[in-house]
Structures are given as C-alpha cells and as structure tokens.
C-alpha cells in the first residue's frame, strides 16, 4: 500500500497533475504579472539551489542539499529576496550602466518549514516584487498599495494590512538582552514579557498594561492616551525614557500608515511587529485575507542587503505573496 502511494504521489509540494489547481494558479499569476509589468517591474529567475550563507537557516534547512563538482555545498532556497538582491549586487558590480533604481519581480517556489510546531519542509509557490534604490519612506505607500491591489485582483476578497517598524523590536531586544524576548514578542506573550520586565525592576501591573497596549493596540488616538497614562504612572525615569524612545521610533511608521490609509488600503498600525527573517531594517507589513489564518503576503524594507553583497549601499524594499495558500481559498 505504502509503495503504491509512493509511486503515484510526490511529497512536500504542489499537487502535480491537478489541472484545475494548476489552471487557477496560472490565471492568478498571469493577472499579477500583468500588474507588475504595468508598474515597470522586470521578471527575473534565480537558481533553485544556492550557497547556504545566502539564506537564513531554519529547522529543516539540511533536509535536502547537494554538492556540486567543485565540492561546494548547495541548498534549496528558503527565500527569494536574499538571492535576488545578491544577483542584483553582482549585476551592479559588473555593469557599466549607472543604476539608481530598479524594480524586479519573480514567480517561483521556495522551500521552508511550514510552521514552528510542525517543522516539515514545504514547497511554497510565491510571487514577489523587489524595489531597489528608492527611499523606503517614499516607496512604502506605493508598495503596500500595489500589494493590496494584487491581492484584491487575484482573489477578489477584502484584504487587511498591518504595518510596523522592526527598529522598535531592535531597541527592545537591546534593552532586555534576553535571548527569549523575540520569541515572546512573536507570540505576543503578555504574561511572559511582563514577568521578564518585572525582573528588570518594572512595576508589574504597569508593565502588564504597557505590553497589552503594545501588542494588542487600540486605534492610534486611544493608544496615545493609554500610553501616556501608563507613562505618567511610572516613577522610574529610565522606564519613562524607554517608553519615550518607543514613541519616538513609532512616529515614522505612524506617518507612513496614515499615507497608506489615504490611498484606500484597509491598514492598521502595529506598535510591535516581528519577522523571523533577520535582514529587515525598517518598515515591515503583512497582508491578511478572510479565510486564511496566516498572512499570505509579507514585506518590508532591507536597506543593508545590497551593501552585504556589493561595495555600494542601496536601499531596498519588497514583498512576497504565497500563492500556495491563496489557491486553498
């Protein structure tokens, strides 16, 4: 029975020889490609295998890898952004063309864990857009607007976006120095974060309120009111300074949020948004759609990535849309 199953199925990937699902996928991709080409994005296809240092490691990273004839270890890509930027940096180094701005898109599978509690490698078919050379503050509203349009046109359903700034997380991680803090924030674990900060001398009831307002934030006006109330109840000047710094770091993304909202995108600002991938440097956003419990679209800015591979520093931002989850809708 088991061997029969192995003869007729393939593990990990898209249900091949499912013509209807394939047609749906192609139709969605064609719509997206047209939209991206109209917005002056150019298609690129990086290799499926690459050197491991290109990607961030994950639990099942070594599930599949091979060695080429030069003895180099090659792994299945877990992410397309790092590869595209690496390719762009190479192009930049060898091109005589003076490039200031560039827009790329790709349609390809990436291979990574499905979820934390089920670390199994999965083939995820995704479409992505990379915008290199444009200032994040300028590019972000357009990028989120494009992502929203893309999702709406593809699936014809209402979308909801959230936006935050990863610099808030960086500041909190430096402040706390606990290695568990990122996981606690990823899980929006108010009790554990309150306990952690309680050990740093914070007032337990106030810190519990602070984390609740940070991680389960109401609308901006109410947020400000409650944030200031909590701050006024703190006796420790250093703790007040911590809250002031969070407020200062949140100001740019609040402005971007307002700019995006003006474009008609259903978006809310999140004081604290976290991403598993390390290369994000500023604004990050996620797009949700009714019927899916995880965000099929994720993006943000990664201003240090071009500089990692080339002698020239250039800002960059982009997003990726998981088509494999959209076809489930």
């Amino acid at each position: 029975m088991h061997s029969e199953f192995r003869k007729t199925r393939s593990p990990y990937g898209f249900p091949f020889l499912d013509p209807r699902a394939t047609e749906n996928l192609y139709a969605m991709i064609e719509k997206i490609k047209k939209l991206l080409i109209d917005e002056n994005y150019r298609g690129v296809i990086p290799g499926t295998l690459d050197f491991p240092e290109t990607f961030q490691e994950y639990e099942t990273f070594d599930a599949f890898h091979s060695r080429d004839s030069h003895g180099e270890d090659l792994y299945l890509r877990s992410d397309a952004t790092a590869q595209i930027i690496k390719g762009f940096a190479n192009f930049l180094e060898h091109s005589h063309e003076k490039i200031n701005e560039y827009k790329y898109f790709y349609v390809l599978p990436v291979f990574r864990d499905a979820r934390k509690s089920y670390p199994r490698l999965r083939e995820i078919y995704q479409v992505g857009a990379e915008n290199i050379g444009m200032d994040s503050d300028m590019a972000m509203p357009e990028l989120v607007y494009l992502a929203d349009k893309m999702m709406k046109q593809t699936i014809g359903k209402e979308t909801r976006f959230i936006i935050g700034d990863v610099r808030v997380l960086h500041y909190i991680s430096e402040y706390s120095s606990s290695i568990k803090i990122k996981d606690m924030i990823l899980n929006r674990d108010v009790p554990s974060l309150s306990k952690e900060f309680g050990e740093l001398g914070w007032d337990l009831s106030m810190v519990n309120q602070m984390w609740s307002v940070m991680l389960y934030a109401p609308e901006l006006l109410e947020w400000k009111e409650r944030w200031n109330f909590i701050k006024s109840k703190l006796n420790n000047k250093l703790h007040q300074a911590f809250m002031n710094e969070i407020e200062r770091l949140s100001a740019p993304v609040q402005k971007i949020h307002a700019d995006i909202e003006k474009k008609g995108v259903n978006i809310s600002w999140e004081p604290l948004l976290v991403r598993n991938v390390e290369y994000y440097t500023g604004f990050i956003f996620e797009g949700y759609v009714e019927g899916l419990s995880v965000a099929p679209l994720r993006g943000g800015s990664y201003d240090n990535l071009v500089g990692k591979y080339s002698r020239r520093d250039m800002t960059a931002c982009g997003f990726a849309l998981d088509m494999s989850s959209l076809i489930l809708l």
């Binding site: 979820r115 934390k116 509690s117 899980n187 929006r188 674990d189 108010v190 009790p191 554990s192 609740s212 991680l215 389960y216 995880v294």
Partner: peptide
C-alpha cells in the same frame, strides 16, 4: 511543550 504559532494575550 507544543511550541505553537499562537498569540498569548493573558494569564
């Protein structure tokens, strides 16, 4: 024990 991808708003 289970390491789930869920949010934990309160004790």
């Amino acid at each position: 024990e289970g390491q789930y991808d869920v949010f934990i708003p309160a004790e």
